[in-house]
Amino acid sequence: MSVAQISAKGEVTIRDLSKSFRIDGDSLTVLKDINLDISGGESLAIVGASGSGKTTLLRVLAGLTEPDSGSVLIDGEPVHGLGKERAVIFQEPRLLPWLTVLGNVAFGLEVQGIPGDEAAERARHYIRLVGLAEFEGAWPRQLSGGMAQRVGIARALTVQPEILLLDEPLGALDAMTKMTMQEELVRIWTEESVTMVLVTHDLEEAIFLADRVLVLPKTKDTAIRLIDIDLPHPRDRSDPDFVRNRRQLMAEFGLH
């Protein structure tokens, strides 16, 4: 591990994390004794079949769901609930329809008590970063799905989190937009030096974006698997090494 990585902020440590839900009186274990270290500035993808608990794990990291037991530490400090050092990008853009693009992007800062002018200035920077400079005055209903999701991404970046938590952020987009947005995410991640934890059901997306891929098993007694994706960014989807990594990851799910 290089010195830069050790000093980087946004390090996540997960210890013995368990979570179960009660459904119709039955207890359903979703996460069992998860241990995981994510280094600062890393890009980690979480994949797994539906019901494997990947979204629950992300929500616990975000502080939106309380774990039953175990702990989450950020930069060595145990965290409970939500925190300013984390920001979530949801599957849906979740924009406030009564605010313009600028208002939506500045929203996160404003609820954190940053004065309007400063919030707007910082928001404009990230609106430019996601390529929506000409649309800062537009209403959400005027945006396409891909543009709306960019606004959601800019809103999360504007609070300058150490850790960006993405819950299938591109799942609802069409294939072409999705690929463009994946490239954007890589660019943003490189520019912002932020830790990125991405839940996805798209194995190619995981390999395109992540340094490591966490495979959550469906049966809770099986250990989690971590796969290193040792390719330089930006990645080429048709590169033989890329294809080899994809084949390896697909084999984890019994796919060919």
Binding site: G63, L64, L82, A87, V88, F90, R94, F107, G108, V111
Partner: peptide
């Protein structure tokens, strides 16, 4: 979902 979004920013 909008309420949860606001909550996620610490509102």
């Amino acid at each position: 979902k909008l309420i949860e979004m606001a909550r996620s920013f610490g509102a």
